[in-house]
């Protein structure tokens, strides 16, 4: 544990030094501030932030994660020649990258709300949920970035793959869902589509957040199905498990790739 902490701190410091995170955090905070100031802080603010966070977070996770692996390559090799277990080195490297990113997102999203005193009160949980979802997405996508960057030694190629993965997860996957939905028309396919959504962590986060906002009740019949499916104990359990799987499996896969990699 001690070793991990000793490695994590410099890794995190290195991640923060990149200025990317600071820029991201300040950008988000400024956006939130602007929205709060000029659109009255109503549900519109939250929904706009939701849009931005859901697009930006995975992109940041994938790009920053990929770059960080390559950036830390030499140090990694230096450290691997020391009597340090690879598993610990991986945990430090991963958390050292993912946690600062998650933290930057969470702070960037929450700061303007805190500043305006909106972090207490009955509606506060919405922005907190959004921040938490962003943080979780950062952890998941950073793990994916690690898998990509550890398998593709070429920096440019890794970045290309990361962007392709983002494109699939953020855009094309939903296009596929839409095609299926249109193809099968009015048949009751909510179940299978929900599974398809859960397969994509971006969709999972989006649907969860939509359910949490007023929008869910405005989804009409589909919203009702969602509420009925996901509002039950089984549904919640399934959602929780899906989230847990996303938070644990990709980092574990990345750790395995790291443990077996020939540097």
């Amino acid at each position: 544990m001690n070793t991990i902490l000793r490695l994590l701190v410099p890794a995190a410091r290195e991640a923060v030094r990149g200025r990317w995170l600071l820029g991201l955090m300040i950008g988000l905070a400024l956006l939130g501030e602007l929205l709060l100031r000029f659109s009255g802080g109503g549900p519109t603010t939250l929904v706009s932030l939701l849009d931005v966070a859901l697009i930006l977070t995975p992109l940041a996770g994938l790009v920053i994660g990929t770059m960080q692996v390559h950036h830390a390559r030499e140090v990694t090799e230096l450290l691997l020649a020391q009597p340090i277990a690879r598993g610990r080195l991986f945990i430090a490297l991963y958390l050292g990258t993912a946690l600062p990113l998650a933290l930057a997102l969470v702070i960037g999203l929450l700061a303007p709300f805190a500043w305006h005193g909106l972090l207490v009160g009955p509606d506060a949980w919405r922005i907190v949920a959004l921040a938490a979802a962003s943080g979780a997405l950062a952890l998941v996508t950073t793990a994916f970035a690690f898998i990509i960057a550890l398998r593709a030694d070429d920096r440019v190629r890794a970045l290309g793959i990361a962007l392709a993965v983002w494109l699939v997860a953020a855009v094309l996957w939903d296009g596929l869902i839409l095609l299926i939905a249109l193809g099968l028309g009015a048949r009751p396919i909510e179940g299978p589509l929900l599974v398809m959504l859960a397969i994509n962590p971006l969709d999972l986060a989006r649907v969860l957040l939509l359910l949490g906002t007023d929008a869910a009740a405005l989804l009409g019949y589909t919203g009702a199905v969602l509420q009925r499916t996901l509002g039950t104990d089984v549904g919640r359990l399934a959602l929780g498990s899906a989230l847990l799987l996303w938070l644990t499996v990709p980092p574990m896969v990345a750790a395995r790739v790291f443990a077996r990699k020939d540097f």
Partner: peptide, 29 residues
């Protein structure tokens, strides 16, 4: 097990260290 590496001193061909650390920082780490 990583323990055997305790006996090894390694001098890589091209030493690319974290740029903001000093030799002494690195040694301490």
């Amino acid at each position: 097990s990583p323990e055997y590496r305790r006996q090894i001193g390694y001098m890589p061909q091209i030493a690319r260290f974290p740029a903001h650390l000093s030799g002494r920082d690195l040694l301490g780490m």
